[in-house]
Amino acid sequence: MAKLRLDKVKPLVALGVFLAAWWVIPTTVKSFMQVSFAEFQAPAWVATSYLDDLEGFWARRSHSKVELIEAGRDLARIKSLYQFNAQRNRTLELEVERLEAILNLPSRREFRYEVARVIRRDLSAWWQHLIIRKGRDFDIPVGAAVVFSGGVVGRVVEVDAFTSRVELITSPNFRIAARFEGDERPVVYQGAPQSGFGDPVGSVRDAPQDIMASRQAPLQLVSTRLGGSFPPGLSIGRVTWLEPGSSGIFQAGQVELDPRLLSLHEVAVLISLSPTDSVNNAP
């Protein structure tokens, strides 16, 4: 009879022992276990991503020659436009450098762009993450900014050997300094819980009282140099209304984000060419 009772509570005893052991185990051991398990899973996701690419390749192979010729013509037009823009960009950069030299301004942070394919999207009530197909093999650092053609995507929060995890701008844990286009005063952008219905949204706070936003005249929220991870001027989203915040001194409102954030296939990771000093946050 006593044996029977012991058998009954065995699962609870084992659970208790596990919880006690988990509490005692050093964080380094837990991190090692987490990394080991994650690295075991990564090849499956990378393989799936390459299979997707292969599927796309075969899908394009089935296109007719006429379609390919038309696509090539369109690409040539876009290429010539980009070549012209690149020339213009180079001229403007030289002009900026010349003015900076005249004014004796401190040098700006420079970034290199690492384009990476999105292999998994994890967008739920509890987390808002992307997994990209580049990791330590491409020197992706934790905290690096991630962008796409529509603006800010998020920030790298975890780097593995061949993959990295990106926290999306929609995540409530994501917060950056921002400013409204045409206004130099900083505000705070923070992600917000998503209902899943409608376009993604975020929130802005600490906006000065004199700033007005409406649906007819929305304000564009862009990144600033403050914080160091993001270059200035990248689009974050659109603000169509502002109301007095909880303090009464500043305003707060909702930021409408780019709906393409939810179906990204490719992003660019910005890797600083002059890594930030983690203590002083200075290059």
């Binding site: 084992a14 659970l15 988990w22 398990f37 994650a38 509890w126």
Partner: peptide, 21 residues
């Protein structure tokens, strides 16, 4: 736990609790 962005050990504890029941 390694696949989801949760505190490492949360799902393990949850599944073990469910399993014990």
């Amino acid at each position: 736990d390694a696949a989801l962005p949760v505190p490492f050990g949360l799902c393990t504890s949850g599944l073990l609790l469910c399993g014990a029941f």
